[in-house]
Design a protein around this nucleic acid. Sequence first.
DNA 1: ACCGGGATGTTCT
DNA 2: GAACATCCCGGTG
Length: 199
Amino acid sequence: MRKLPRSFYRRDSLELAPLLLNKLLVHGSRVVRIVEVEAYRGESDPASHAYRGCTARNATMFGREGHLYVYFTYGMHWCANVVCGEKGVARAVLLRAAAPVAGLAELRAARFGSSARRPPASQRDRDLCSGPAKLAQAMGLTGEHDGADLVLGDLGVVLAADGIEPPASPGTSTRIGLSAGTEQPWRFFVTGDPNVSRR
DNA sequence: ACCGGGATGTTCT
DNA sequence: GAACATCCCGGTG
């Protein structure tokens, strides 16, 4: 398991997004393998939080590459992005889904509660991280992790590579859940992985 | 299986 | 006041 250097993040979000597939996201003892992402491209992208410039909410997106951008939405959900590009240029990749790898008990507790009873059919492993807010909830990522440096491992959050390469031909589609910028095929996913979010 | 609506509160117009 | 990079549950077929 090899932590990714700063230079890995020094690319445009469109280039970084498919490279994030099959990378490991680590938070303490919890480890997941990223299987679905979306690229966002700042000022030129009407779907991006940075489309109308830098605000208190999206400031991390304009900051240094290799940091987490975590935002709050729909009054109850957190979503996590990886900031890339160069400082001052708002580029980020939304982490949309992942496969559980380690720390399954903690992932389940964070998503479904710590009750010891047998989970119902809806509480399957593929429901742990099969969406951006589910992924953040399972991994325990909230506003306190906004701005965390993945290269330094701030707050125990790290991005790492193991033996698994990104897919040579990832699946692609338009981005999900938007009302603008819906034309660009800037969603990338590991074809056939059961943890990829469903439409 | 699919579809519709409610939850819940921050951010920006 | 509206929108929101979402999710869950309960309806119906």
